[in-house]
Amino acid sequence: MNWIERVEQARAHNHWQPLVEAVPFARFLGLSIDVKGEEFTCILPYREMLIGNPILPALHGGATGGFLECAALFYLLWRMESTDLPRTIDFNIDYLRSGRPRDTFANVHMVKQGTRVANLRIEAWQTTPQEPIALAHGNFLLRNAVS
């Protein structure tokens, strides 16, 4: 199955795990996606390999950042009509709390959907969404929109 078919399948069945499995880096991180109605959550299950500092221990900033970028891209595939994988233009991460050795969740909010660019805000949390461990925002190029 090619990429376009996989995206169409995921949308048709609202079943996103096969699409996650099709992206090697998402599979490497062990991501999963939970869609309930209009609520989209991306989950990074805890694994020892995600640790940056083993003494604290705390998640690697790069692991949290990569997870948030994955969440944003899957969110756009879920929300948008295009089957093209959007391209990240820029990505900005604020680290608010130490990432503990436990599962991390990401919620995505579309700040602005333009014809060519989508601006997203992504929140990562572990215990409750009210206590985010990181906040990211970024601009994404919607590729099929470019003529």
Binding site: V23, P24, F28, G61, G62, G66, E69
Partner: peptide, 27 residues
């Protein structure tokens, strides 16, 4: 490495790999 690819159609590495690389290099 194949495992780190973000776009399976092109084989381009995921942005998250670059993020982690630069986070580590900056640190």
């Amino acid at each position: 490495r194949e495992e780190l690819v973000g776009d399976p159609s092109t084989g381009v590495l995921h942005g998250g790999v670059i993020t982690a690389l630069l986070d580590a290099a900056c640190g």
